[in-house]
Design a protein around this nucleic acid. Structure first.
Length: 849
DNA sequence: AGCACGCCGACT
DNA sequence: GTCGGCGTGCTC
């Protein structure tokens, strides 16, 4: 049996030094409540470590007899008419003076025992400060979902109290409520759902309550709880007691299994029933107790694997990392296929030996199956994954498991940077240039790389940033004049691939010439020849296209009308569904879907034309021109369900298809040795995006996708198709020349004060009312002049003004480098912003659309 | 979530 | 002058 006992979770020191009193003494606790309202405060609070009193309001509660509360516990507290989650901040021996004692309420429950250590609290506070986010919201993102529970109030129909035909005497609101309630079997709905559906809801509800036709009740928060299973333990040998033969047999089975079995296992082996075992329990021979079990993502069994021999470059990089004692960051710049993962594995090994834990952060879950398998092969059950695709139970259990002091390795995405590992010895952030480490919404709009840097500093451990195409931020740390800057920064390089394999040659094809010479296919003659060769040799390849779907827009040949999304200012993408009669048009911003019309809705012409190509189109064209080549489509349409990534990749690795056709998703860390061809169908979609980061992103994506080939014994080849072969990004990718590309790019950024030189803060404003946002943006822009050290760009409408029926405006603050700025008065800005307009402050924005 | 409070427009 | 709608702030 493999029960895991998670005993004292206590890894933390109390946040404050207050001792709790005895059971008879009255005890109070100050709580940071997860209150949906804005956390602004006027009254002065006593200073509490870890809490900025001027911004976060604390509420005092009484601790009832029979409950033990410590600082750092997650609590359930009554708040007005609801039950909310909260964090115990500090204990008081005396009641507070600023609030009447008779108004103080009792704590409802302790949900989780304390776990916040000093350094963890400091991390929370630093994130809160840097990203202008209330502390409780930072805590909310750091904790597994469902831990800070919230009650829900609901109403329920009481049909037995409703006389026939009496509805006529009610007003319209009450009648509407009744009507909705009756649509459901048990007439039960949440207030949250009903209120926006009925005008004058409060009035109507009051009427119905007075007559007793409905009742209201509070649904208590459903917290994640440990899953338990009954287990049987042998207590007494039992030989001196008078036992039946049957009972003795059962005890023998238990004894043979080291005196411990799951109840279900024991009943199965002995073919016995629960009453029989209960009798044994009464005689004091055995104990039946619930024991915690861990819900974990099931992974296939993996053959164990030993450390590989390193190249001299790898050895040097490894030495740089393992020689570090305490905080430092190492940028591991290794070309694609240079064996960064092996360096990670060998860097983690001594950390585990020392009894410490390691945190490995990866961009997206798409690439984790391969990486996770390699870690499991090396470290076995010490490896756990943590990401948002886990079920709530799995996430909660893994999170609790992390609190145990045993050395472990956690592999996770962005949010795992908050993994509460008590003795962290190393943080690795792989593919550090990847933009999925940045959260766009909700606040805090944190970048896991930045948070990881702070975390490493606070835990006093090294941080390794790995990439073949490092971000400009990591390449030069320009922020040294800002607080929390990196003090020790090292670079380790892996300039060559393992086993002396060369980087694949990159050929650029000018698609303008193809067209001139009469080739109207989406495949150039060079790519066609390469595909032909692939077919003859039965090899495998990858085709990359930057969009999913079939065609990027559908337009009428007669009148030029373009099919557009009714909710967003974008054209609809055509999606082809094989075997279906009707084909669909889909919006990639709000997911609006409609059937492809047979004729133009504007002029009625039946001649509709599809422009631009996506993954589906490539798939179709391939099937048409190369019927003998088989393919797998790998994009967010085909990898949506759980385990789909792994399934599709396994099929490909097993040689069940010649080609993998996909989007960005397949640029990320895929390591399949037999790939000998990479084709980029159209690089132009990547090159001409309108923000200051477009070149950097295009270079990274193209280099990464090119790096997927030639990793095995057969040499590889990359073909990039484009209409602008003279573009500097294309030239740099062709020459595999990261350093000169980055030099040019850095010079341009410096000239314009863009990151990594000047910092940016983006204010995003949106509303259903087009005029209201625009006005709000104007007023806010004016109020932003209260600060100093930055330039205000805008307000300007967002690149796509309307998404999901909301109009979006933005204001960009560009900070001068080398000047400590005076921030605008955000509190004032928030007050100026009307409630109908939603505003988010995006610090260090990556996505400017 | 739900109540108190306060502002403003429609009616006695 | 008063009633009742709804927008805003507060809850230990």
């Amino acid at each position: 049996m493999n029960g895991v006992s998670i005993s004292p979770l206590m890894v933390a020191e109390p946040i404050s030094g207050y001792n709790i009193g005895t059971m008879t003494e009255e005890r109070w606790v100050e709580v940071l409540v997860d209150n949906p309202g804005v956390a602004t405060d006027d009254s002065a609070q006593p200073p509490v470590p870890g809490i900025r009193a001027e911004e976060e309001k604390l509420y005092t509660y009484r601790v009832p007899d029979g409950l033990e509360v410590k600082a750092g516990d997650i609590l359930s507290v009554p708040f007005a008419s609801q039950i909310l989650g909260g964090v115990a901040i500090r204990l008081l021996r005396q009641p507070p003076t600023n609030v009447a004692v008779n108004r103080i309420r009792d704590i409802e429950d302790v949900v989780a025992k304390e776990f916040f250590r000093d350094s963890y609290w400091k991390l929370m506070e630093r994130v809160s400060e840097y990203y202008f986010t209330p502390l409780i919201k930072v805590i909310r993102t750091a904790l597994p979902p469902g831990l800070l529970g919230r009650s829900q109030s609901r109403i329920r129909l009481k049909p037995e109290n409703i006389p026939n035909g009496a509805e006529v005497f009610l007003d319209s609101a009450a009648r509407e409520i009744l009507q909705i309630l009756k649509t459901q079997q048990n007439g039960d709905y949440s207030i949250k759902f009903l209120r926006p559906k009925v005008r004058g809801f409060n009035r109507g509800k009051k009427q119905l309550l007075q007559r007793g036709w409905i009742e209201s009740y509070l649904e208590l928060p459903r917290h994640s709880r440990p899953k338990t299973k009954p287990a049987v333990t042998l207590l007494e040998d039992g030989s001196y007691l008078e036992l039946t033969k049957r009972q003795q047999e059962i005890l023998k089975v238990l004894r043979d299994n080291r005196g411990d079995l799951w109840l279900s296992e024991l009943m199965e082996i002995c073919k016995t029933t629960l009453p029989t075992l209960k009798t044994l329990q009464q005689k004091g021979c055995i104990a039946i107790q619930d024991r915690e079990i861990l819900r974990k993502e099931q992974s296939p069994d993996i053959a164990a694997d030993r450390a590989k021999t390193l190249t001299p470059d790898q050895t040097q990089a490894l030495e740089t990392i393992v020689s570090l004692n305490g905080f430092a960051t190492v940028l591991l710049h290794g070309v694609t296929g240079s064996g960064k993962t092996e360096v990670y594995l060998q860097a983690i090994d001594p950390i585990i030996q020392q009894g410490k834990s390691a945190l490995v952060l990866v961009p997206e879950i798409g690439l984790t199956p391969q990486l996770t398998d390699r870690f499991r092969a090396r470290f076995g059950s010490k490896v756990d994954v943590y990401h948002s695709a886990l079920s709530q139970g799995e996430r909660y259990d893994t999170w609790r498991q992390m609190l145990v002091k045993e050395p472990q390795i956690i592999i996770g995405t962005r949010s795992a940077v908050f993994a509460p590992l008590p003795n962290l010895g190393l943080i690795i952030l792989d593919e550090e240039h990847d933009s999925s480490f940045k959260q766009d919404s909700p606040i805090p709009t944190y970048h896991a790389r930045k948070v990881a840097t702070w975390r490493a500093e606070l835990e006093n451990c090294p941080l390794v940033l790995g990439s073949a195409t490092p971000s400009l931020e990591s390449w030069i740390d320009s922020n040294s004049q800002l607080p929390h800057s990196v003090e020790t920064r090292l670079i380790a390089s892996l300039p060559n691939r393992v086993n002396s394999r060369p980087l694949p040659p990159v050929e650029v094809v000018d698609m303008r010439q193809e067209l001139q010479q009469g080739n109207r296919s989406i495949f150039s003659r060079k790519l066609q020849a390469a595909l032909q060769e692939l077919e003859e040799r039965q090899q495998q390849g990858i085709l990359f296209i930057h969009r999913r779907g079939h065609s990027t827009f559908v337009s009428c040949r007669s009148c030029g009308f373009v099919m557009e999304c009714p909710n967003c200012d974008v054209s609809l993408t055509y999606h082809y569904h094989e075997g279906e009669e009707a084909q669909l048009l889909q919006c990639h911003y709000c997911n609006y879907t409609q059937i492809q019309p047979k004729s133009c809705p504007e002029c009625g012409s039946p001649y509709l034309k599809f422009f631009g190509s996506g993954t589906q189109r490539v798939e179709q064209e391939l099937a048409k021109q190369f019927p003998n080549l088989t393919s797998i489509r790998f994009d967010s349409d085909t990898t949506r369900h759980k385990g789909a990534h792994r399934d599709l990749l396994t099929k490909f690795v097993n040689g069940e298809a010649n080609l993998l056709i996909g989007t960005q998703m397949l640029t990320k860390g895929l390591d399949i040795p037999q790939v000998t061809l990479v084709g980029v169908i159209a690089a132009d979609g990547l090159l001409h995006l309108s923000d200051y980061r477009a070149s950097e992103r295009a270079f990274q994506t193209l280099t990464q996708v090119a790096g997927r080939c030639g990793r095995g014994d057969d040499p590889g080849k990359v073909i990039i198709q484009t209409y602008t072969p003279e573009h500097p990004v294309i030239e740099a990718v062709e020459k595999h020349d990261y350093e000169s590309f980055i030099q040019v790019e850095l010079e341009q950024r410096e000239a314009l004060n863009y990151p990594p030189y000047g910092r940016l803060i983006l204010l995003r404003l949106s509303s259903v009312d087009a005029i209201e946002v625009q006005n709000a943006a104007q007023i806010i822009a004016v109020s932003l002049s209260s600060g100093e050290g930055y330039e205000i760009l805008g307000p300007a409408p967002a690149t796509i003004l309307r998404v999901a029926n909301r109009f979006r405006w933005q204001i960009l603050l560009k900070f001068e480098p080398n000047v400590l700025p005076k921030m605008p008065d955000w509190e004032q800005v928030r007050q100026i912003c009307p409630s109908s307009v939603s505003m988010t402050i995006d610090v260090d924005p990556l996505n400017m659309m």
